[in-house]
Every structure is written in C-alpha cells, then in structure tokens.
Design a protein around this nucleic acid. Structure first.
Length: 494
RNA sequence: CGGGGUGUAGCGCAGUCCGGUUAGCGCAUCUGGUUUGGGACCAGAGGGUCCCAGGUUCGAAUCCUGGUACCCCGACCA
C-alpha cells in the first residue's frame, strides 16, 4: 500500500490537495466516473452511517418523523417562489427525455427525440417546493399543525467546481421541513434545530461551531432568516456546516397553503427548513487530521480500538490470538467497536501506519513480552503517544480512555478555534490578519449588503455569521466607518 | 466559462523536446522461502487498445490536426 501523505502545510495553497489525498488514501471516498460526483467507500460510509444514526435519533427526540418525497420536481413548481428559483436556477440538472433508442445510423444508443417531456423535471437541489406542494393537501386546520417532517435523501447541485465531501454535484443529506401555526413557533423550531446541529458537531464530531445569523447576502434563497453553524478548518478557512432557515410565509404563499386558525379565519402557515449533509464529513476530516492521517473522535469512529499481534510463528500467533480475543470480547461487552487484526501477510509496522491513517483512536499491540509480563502496548491516535500497561483492568481503562480522547480532541479543536478569532477595528488590521493569520475576524460592519459585497470583492472574505450571542457594542464599520451596533465574524470560506 | 497542468500495467511515475530493436521503473498482485516490538527481504511470475480519432512517415507513446477526460487556480457556490 505504501501510503505517504504529502506534507501538511496549513494555510498554503496545497492544503486542498493534501485534503484530497487524505480522503482518497484513507479509503473514505474518491471521484466517480461522473463529473463532480463522488463514490463514498465503505469506510467513509460507516462514519456517515453513524452520523446519520445519531442525528436521526436527535430529530426523533425532538418530535420529528421521517418521510420521503420525489427526486423529480416539475419545473413549474420551482418558479413559484421568486428568490428561490433565482438562487438555484444556475445549478439544476434537468430531465428532458424519458427514453433512449438505438441510433438509426448505428452509432450506439441515443436519446429518442420523440420522447421529450412536455414539462421538464428538475432533479431536486432541495425539496422545499415539492414538499410545500404536498403540504398544501395535508393542511386545512390548525389541528393539522405542526407538521414536523425530515427527509434523508440525495440532492443534486450542478456546481461549477467540486471538492470531495465539501461540494459535490450529488450529495447525501437530511432536510427537515416543518409547518407551524405561528411565527414565534417557527422561529423557535429553527432555533431549536440549529442548536441540535451545534450539539451534534461539538459532542459527537468534536468540531466547535459558532451559531449565528447569516447576513442577507448569504441567506438561503427564499428564507427570511438563516441560522448557521460555522466551523473553522485547520488552514484557517471557515466551513458552513449546517443551516436552519426561518422561511416565514414565503412558501405557504407560493403554494397557497392556508389553515383555518382558532378563530376560524384562513391564514398562511409558517415554515422552517434545516439540513446537514455529507459536507460534515469534510468538516470532520479537515478539523482534526494530521500528517499521519485522520484523527476520528471515538464516538464516530467505525473502529474504536484495534488490536495488532506481534509474533513469530504459528504458535505465538495462536497464543496472542487467544488473549486478543479475550480482551476484544471484554470491550465488545461494553459496546466498544473493536477489531482484531490477525492478518498474517502484513507486518505490525504496516498495520500501525494503516490504522493511524484511518484515524482509529486506540491501538493495542500484543507480543510475546506482553504475554509473559501480563502487559499490553497502548497507543493513542490523538496524541500519538504509547505506553505499556497492565492487562489487568484494560477494558475499563480503555472505556474511560475513549471518553478522554473524545474530550481531548474537542479541547484541542476548541483551543485552536478560539485562538483564531481575532478582534480588529481598522481596515489595515483586517487585511493584515486575513492575509497572514486567517481564521475568524470579529469586526464591526455597517449592516449593508453593499459593504459586505465590497469587502468580499476586495479580500474574498465574507460575513460567516452574526453570532447569536453577540454582545451589543457600539463601533464603526471597518470598511465605511459608519456606525455599527455589534461585531460580526468575517472569514474566507470553502 | 477563462488560465495552467496531466492522461503510459491496479496505484505512482520515467520515456515525448531530438521518431528507430521486444515500452521501462517503484509500489501493489501471485508463487516459494526467510521474516514479524513502527511502513520486511530474497528469488521467480503475471499484468499494457501508451486517453480517442484522423494525418505525416519505411517506422509514432514520441511529430501534426481535432476531440475527450481528470486535476489545480479563478469565476461560481443556502
């Protein structure tokens, strides 16, 4: 296998090449034969599957139910909400025909021109329109509300430029779509779900995030307010990792979804939508990985503990195997995901390197010495340290250690992130920090889209969010000098 | 869509400028043996429409024309 990652020089141009290399070599995913799409390999999918399972549990615990809506959306649905169509029109895959046939000139298979659809179908880039067209039939009275649905699905966005996990033409996600009686209830729902995402990112992925509002420029097409969780990658760029939108009555009006309220009057319903995608995989990889490969938080690692035997000959292998299985059984009894790697054709050093590349949190190595002394070698992926410990109580020790590793990975990411939030008050400082340090820049902004655009044009930095817990503070916009009432976070982003 | 780069064995590449035996190297694979506490070694074997099409030539991986795919940078991107 001879895997060697290119040197990780953070915040250099080759960071994305390094990331790409890592994703492929760690066996997570690769580019597919279809432009801009990716193949998620079993190891990568196992991580996603775990994320899916945990998030799904969190959605259900907050009263949501899963449902499924069509992949294809009639073109006409799309144009009902003006800003929505404007936001997505440029990146839609369109189905125009429904049949192929043999080329009469013998050049293989061609699209049958006779089989043109009367109305083209859009491959969903997001499902608001088809879902609201459906909700219309489900809602007549306040007694039908709220509707709290979530969909796990794939969507397609024909982006001009793609990156594994971060921006692929097709990606997996979940999208929650809820309908409510009142504005307050919808806002509360949108807030609740962004906090679910924050909790998931921090407690499961060990990725600290800032919760905040998007500026109007960055808002979802069709939303009145977009809440976001913003994470920081190791090269100092921000990654929008999940969003929750308060849609107001925009889609209800576009699809004419009214309900009879408690006074018997017809009103439009209030809506939210919220989603996270396989982009979270990119966040997980870019937030923690080092030059030896992935560093996975124990809670999401498909393999939490791997046991590698060191032996000479069949007899020693058999002896090691017996002890390894005993320890593995003990770990499994505590619900720990453990793998015994007794492959006979690979040497220990190779296996060590391989599991480091794959980010396995804890590695045990068991050899003759250990069998004689009742010890075992224990290596941590997060700190790359190893020690020889007693086999006595090893199972409990590891159970506690996994929690410690989880906490340590988060702390490391949090310390880094906090060290990369820089307050600046002048334009010169802003440019200086942006070019030399990166990360989030906390600065005053006059609140206008024009200024945000001008800053973006000048520096490529955008407002990542207006933090939800931002303290009111009087100041002057770093670009125009006009008055501002709170700081916002700027960064370059993926 | 612009700028740059690359298509040669499963993977990574050399060879291309300056055309010339049977297209080569490393890794991986298979066989046999020795190994095994940080990416093993020896011996042998298998594996190729040199991205595609056309052209020039006695002869093309190499030169010419056209096409195509992928990668990086930009533009673009709730």
């Amino acid at each position: 296998m001879a895997v060697e990652l290119k040197d990780l020089t953070k915040s250099e141009d080759n960071y994305s090449q390094w990331y790409n290399d890592l994703v492929v070599k760690a066996g997570l995913a690769e580019n597919s034969a279809v432009r801009g799409c990716m193949v998620i390999k079993p190891y990568g999918y196992a991580i996603w599957e775990k994320m899916h399972e945990v998030l799904d549990g969190m959605f259900k615990a907050t009263g949501h139910q899963n449902a499924y809506f069509p992949l294809f959306i009639p073109k006409s649905f799309f144009s009902r909400e003006a800003s929505h169509v404007e936001g997505f029109a440029k990146e839609c895959a369109v189905v125009t025909h429904y049949r192929l046939k043999n080329d009469p000139e013998g050049k293989g298979i061609v699209v049958d021109p006779e089989a043109r659809l009367e109305e083209e179908l859009i491959v969903r880039p997001t499902s608001e329109t088809i879902i609201w067209n459906t909700y219309k039939n489900w809602i007549t009275s306040y007694r039908d509300l709220p509707i709290l649905c979530n969909q796990w699905a794939n969507v397609v966005r024909w982006e001009m430029r793609t990156r594994l996990f971060l921006r692929t033409a097709e990606f997996l996600w979940q999208e929650g779509h809820t309908a409510h009686e009142t504005k307050e209830e919808a806002i509360e729902e949108a807030t609740k779900m962004i906090n679910v995402y924050k909790q998931f990112a921090e407690e499961w992925m060990c990725v600290p995030v800032v919760v905040g509002h998007k500026s109007p420029n960055e808002r979802f097409a069709g939303a009145e307010d977009t809440l976001t969780i913003e994470a920081l990658m190791q090269d100092g760029k921000a990654l929008q990792s999940g969003t929750s939108h308060f849609l107001g009555q925009n889609f209800a009006k576009a699809f004419d979804v009214k309900y009879a309220n408690r006074e018997g009057k017809l009103e439009y319903v209030w809506a939210t939508s919220w989603g996270v995608s396989t982009r979270l995989m990119g966040a997980l990889i870019m937030a923690h990985s080092d030059n030896n490969g992935l560093v996975l938080p124990p809670k999401l690692a498909p393999i939490q503990v791997v046991i590698v035997p060191i032996y000479k000959g069949e007899e020693q292998l058999a002896a090691a195997r017996a002890k390894m299985n005993e320890i593995a059984d003990g770990l499994k009894a505590l619900g720990i995901r453990v793998k015994v790697d007794d492959r006979d054709n690979l040497r220990p050093g190779f296996k060590f390197a391989e599991y480091e590349l794959k980010g396995v949190p804890v590695r045990l190595a068991l050899g003759q010495r250990d069998l004689q002394n009742g010890t075992i070698e224990l290596a941590r992926r997060d700190t790359l340290t190893k020690e020889t410990v007693s086999q006595e109580g090893i199972v409990e020790h590891i159970a506690a250690l996994l929690d410690e590793i989880q906490a340590n990975i988060f702390k490391k990411a949090l310390d880094y992130r906090n060290s990369m939030i820089t307050k600046v008050d002048t334009w010169d400082e802003f440019v200086e920090v942006l070019n030399n340090k990166g990360g989030f820049i906390s600065a005053h902004w006059d609140g206008t889209p024009e200024t945000e655009q001008a800053i973006k044009d000048a520096t490529k930095a955008t407002i990542r969010c207006i933090p939800i817990d931002a303290e009111p503070e009087e100041g002057k916009c770093i670009f125009t000098g006009k008055p501002s009432h709170c700081r916002v976070l700027f960064a370059k982003s993926y």
